[in-house]
Nucleic acid binder design. Sequence first.
RNA 1: GGGGGAAUGGCGGAAUUGGCAGACGCGCAUGACUUAGGAUCAUGUCUCUUACGAGGUGAGGGUUCGAGUCCCUCUUUCCCCACCA
Length: 953
Amino acid sequence: MTQREKYSPQAIESKWQERWQKDELYRSKVDWSKPKYYALTMLPYPSGDLHIGHWFAMTPSDARARYMRMKGYNVMFPMGFDAFGLPAENAAVQRGIHPAKWTRANIEQMRKQMQSMGAMFDWERQAVSCEPEYYKWTEWFFKKFYESGLAYRSEALVNWSPTLQTVLANEQVIDGKDERTGQPVIQKMLTQWFFRMTKYADELLNYPNVDWPDPIRTMQTNWIGRSEGARVTFHTEVGNYPIEVFTTRPDTLWGATFMVLAPEHPLVSKITPPEHKDAVQTYVENAARETELERTSDEREKTGVFSGAYAINPVSGERIPIWIADYVLITYGSGAIMAVPAHDVRDFAFARKYGLEIRPVIRPDDAGEDFCVNEAYSGAGKMINSGRFEGTVSNGEKGRKNPAISAVIDWLAQEGQGRESVNFRMRDWLISRQRYWGSPIPMIYRHDGTIEPVADSDLPVRLPDDVVMSGVGNPLGNHDGFVNAIASTGKPARRETDTMDTFMCSSWYWYRYLSPHYDSAPFDPEEAAYWLPVDVYTGGAEHATMHLLYARFFTKSMRDLGMFEETADIMHAHGRDPQNLFNEPFMILRNQGQILGEEREGHYVRAHGQWASGNKLYADQVNVIGQDEALMDDPVALSSITGEFGSIAEEAMRGTLIGEIIKRTENLLTVRERNGEVKTIEVLADAEINIPDVPGINTVNQLKHHLEIQRMSKSKGNVINPDDWVASHGADTVRAYLMFGFDWTKGGPWDSQGIEGPARWLRDVWDLVTAGAPSNAQSDPNVERALERRVHQTIYKVGNDLENFSFNTSVAALMTLKNELKAAARDGKISADVWREAVKAMLLMMAPITPHMVEELWERIGGAYSIHQQAFPTFDPVKAADDMTTLVVMKNGKPVDRVDVPVDIDEPTAIKLALETAGAKRALNGGEPKRVIFVAARGGAGQTSEPKVNIVV
RNA sequence: GGGGGAAUGGCGGAAUUGGCAGACGCGCAUGACUUAGGAUCAUGUCUCUUACGAGGUGAGGGUUCGAGUCCCUCUUUCCCCACCA
């Protein structure tokens, strides 16, 4: 027997990658004679290393794009980098590398890694958001938004570090302190740039003609948080300071027994009388130290302070106290509320704590005298204590659907006391960042205080290279050459030093992919007319509310600013109807889950030392031992630890601890003993540590601790490096494993054993195909027919599953086909022709998943280059159809017998056959069935479910 | 706190409209081959039961001839919450 060549991916993968690149196999060019397909996957942040998570997101997306291409579409599958952001600045501060240098080096590294995936990215279309040819247009968009009134300046709170004179990201603030310096952080008001996203709030609630997952829509809908109600004006007792409040419950106005202002409310200082100033000011300062999340937590006790001022309830004319409390947010509604403690849980808790009046104004129909005494009531009932509205039904619905709310709103409007109003939880988009590494905001402040945008001819405003990145202050603000500008008037002026939120860059990048070097507009309308809109967008669900909402807002704004008009004209010219193509950016959206770290055991150790207490050991020796030894319940093993140590007294103090390390912090080991008890070992500085696998002198840092399945991170030491797996198993195996081993929408823990399944699959296919057709086969027509049937059932399943993002089952179907083909070939029961047809179909179906190996095998069986330019096999329902099937006989829904029947069996025959089976007779036990139900075979193309007869006894 | 998911063998997961639960794979077990095995091949692998059978999809209820799937109550767990991207 000749020694056959083994599958060795390393030898073939780079060969084909180079060939494909040389032949420009994946260049996507406009071709109006073919249907287009724009497949987009979220662009990565260039953190430096391609993570296994990137592979998990991109590989199935790539496979699906390849499948669409084999189905006859002209597919564009581009890639780029979201290259502005905080990590580059951190690298600059910590290591003195310029953000641009750091970022560009990372991009080069990641691009190389991505090329090793064998993905069909068209690198000619690469867009990088930190390059001037890109951010020129980010700035341009800002300018257009400004000119059309979508961008405006207003105040907002930031995390401000007085020590560093800089704004901090939420993630840089831990426990109200800067994570780097440990210095306190306060909430500070700053004038910043906003986009008027709320203008589109209502439109964003609708999803015309798009196929998006329901949970994403729900999350966005809740995020936008539309609520109907009324704005009502309360007048203060002293001074002309009307306070406007928003309420969803105008029907409870008569129960408003006090008001609450947010601590940041501008009227706080105006209405507070002198004798209350000190207390109020102290409270306001304390509130500034807390984040919004902390302030609105229900678990935290509500706090507040009386302002000393009073307002007049506009409907009852009563005098009500005005309080300051941080459970009211300046960012929601008007930053002030009317408090109705009887019917709102938060107001109720507050009133209880500070002894404020609780007056019920909605009475549930079945209420006793004591309702509203122990808790707020927010359900349906009739209005009471409410003047002219006494007895009006409040049915518990929101907005106009509630007759009480509707009636009160109308009356308020008529009386001039208030008006109907819709409020959104979503706020306008704050795009200002007080940072260096972002797209500059192209605005200039004249000396007279007015603002002007930078002239188009001066775009882009470039980031200066020679900035000082010390982590203190704002690098752009400290750079005179950048700050000093000349206004259009010719006079000196000051340049805006805020840069834009990086979400701004990622809100339009798929338009830049159309023509990344186009110089007269953000995108070339000739390309746009053919490729837009994006047909499928894949990425992580963590972007559900922010990135995906910003992206939708951007596209709608672009549409309204006429930025697609030229594109639409070109579409018309090619006979394509542009109607409704620019309302939404992405037609189909799908989200993948996350790959988590692999579960791993910690080292089992036997530590010797002195007991500090019953559960803490000072160890002078730590030995890593086998798990068997650690779990051994031989008492001799446990007690055999004696030694040639000092005095008897000292000996008595000595102890031994055996168990698995479940946590390690510096030199403190948390160890779980065999009996489950958890104890601590403090490893002394001069302790001896022995790890058998690791030669040389070992240190405490080399001890591994147990790892629960969790997100990968460098600090946990559980990062899976895809490069290592590509080196050892090949890119095709990693691709196949990522597609096969997980529910793509869920993700899950990496399993370095589990990858062996796909590895064997590919080795098997390799061996099967390179072995050639069985010679001298005694072909069996039944086996050949069965194989043909399996091939066509597989064509149906693989095609459908790839299209429906069910990647793991498509691979499973291909494995099943391989198993059957292998068995048939081994038994020598198929002819060379049948073998060849089956192999061809199998390779073509595998092409989207394992592109390198099939290209190699395709060449070896004499297929025309390239397999990736072939059509996906055509499904034939006749060839896929089964002749026979299994009739399942059930008793009360549980199977009791089976019988082989033709697939087209009719009901009377099936019931007759079923009742004759031994299982049915046993089930009936001589009696008569109460009822017999026939469930016909569900069929269809490529697959059938079996017919059933359910016997009810 | 608010919002959105998820829960099926030892593990990853499959199950189309409510119709044979556990496809496919990992691991494991037994056997074969082998100087060797982290290679390969064969067989088996939800639980209880000698068997016949019975039970079984986080827990408890419900609807139905029939529930992993639908409804109600609960538990656990993951993700997001506006300057991480």
